[in-house]
């Protein structure tokens, strides 16, 4: 039984990992775009972005997931196929929008946190804007955002369990399913081990990145 449960949970973990990986893949660049939009000199764009970020950060992720999944169908637009792929895709879309907004705030902090004097020092040395970004500010920005980003990314691992609300067969859902089918509670607790290991590996990666960037202050 233990082996059967483990195998089922591993397949759930795979879905969890898919949601996690695709959300990161799309939310990181989108977050950067939103960050630049939120710093735009064009006021209407700036206000629009700030309003969107306020709405996304101001409502529960679970609610956003339900709206993304059921909303289109209610107006007769059936974008999500009823199968597992459709559910995972809807989850990734909802998560990407949500996480991109959180990331954008972190990115903005990272960009604005690099002192203006760094850019000016590059300018007076005749560097181009591109050179200043690539050679001077980028690494400093990355160093600044690693700690807050690691927080968000670890939260993302655990937020994937919300996909259960639209019946995507991720880790928590697979664990929960044994309760309904076989009256077993321990598989649900067992999922905790998987989350811990997942987050443990991420923590090691973040520690490595922080160490690699610790040679300067």
């Amino acid at each position: 039984m233990f082996w059967t449960v483990t195998q089922t949970l591993l397949s759930g973990l795979l879905t969890t990992f898919e949601i996690f990986a695709f959300t990161l893949l799309f939310a990181l660049p989108l977050g950067l775009v939103i960050a630049f939009g939120s710093m735009s000199k064009f006021k209407p764009l700036k206000w629009l972005i700030h309003t969107i970020v306020w709405i996304i950060r101001g409502t529960p992720l679970m609610l956003q997931l339900l709206i993304i999944f059921y909303g289109p169908g209610m107006i007769g637009w059936h974008v999500w196929s009823g199968n597992e792929t459709g559910r995972i895709t809807a989850t990734v879309v909802a998560f990407t929008i949500n996480y991109a907004c959180y990331f954008s705030v972190i990115f903005r902090g990272g960009i604005e946190g690099v002192p203006a004097g760094q850019r000016e020092a590059g300018e007076v040395l005749g560097m181009t804007k591109g050179q200043i970004f690539r050679k001077i500010t980028l690494v400093q920005m990355i160093k600044r955002i690693v700690p807050p980003m690691s927080n968000e990314i670890i939260t993302l691992v655990k937020d994937t369990s919300l996909a259960r609300t639209i019946a995507a067969y991720e880790l928590t859902f697979t664990g929960y399913s044994f309760m309904k089918s076989a009256g077993l509670v321990w598989p649900l607790f067992y999922t905790g081990i998987f989350y811990l290991l997942f987050v443990g590996i991420l923590t090691l990666i973040f520690n490595y990145v922080e160490r690699r960037l610790s040679y300067f202050k």
């Binding site: 002192p115 004097g117 760094q118 000016e120 020092a121 007076v124 001077i136 690494v139 400093q140 040679y215 300067f216 202050k217």
Partner: peptide, 11 residues
Amino acid sequence: MVFQSFNLFPQ
């Protein structure tokens, strides 16, 4: 230009 706050590149 030499700045008051040096503005050396820390990395």
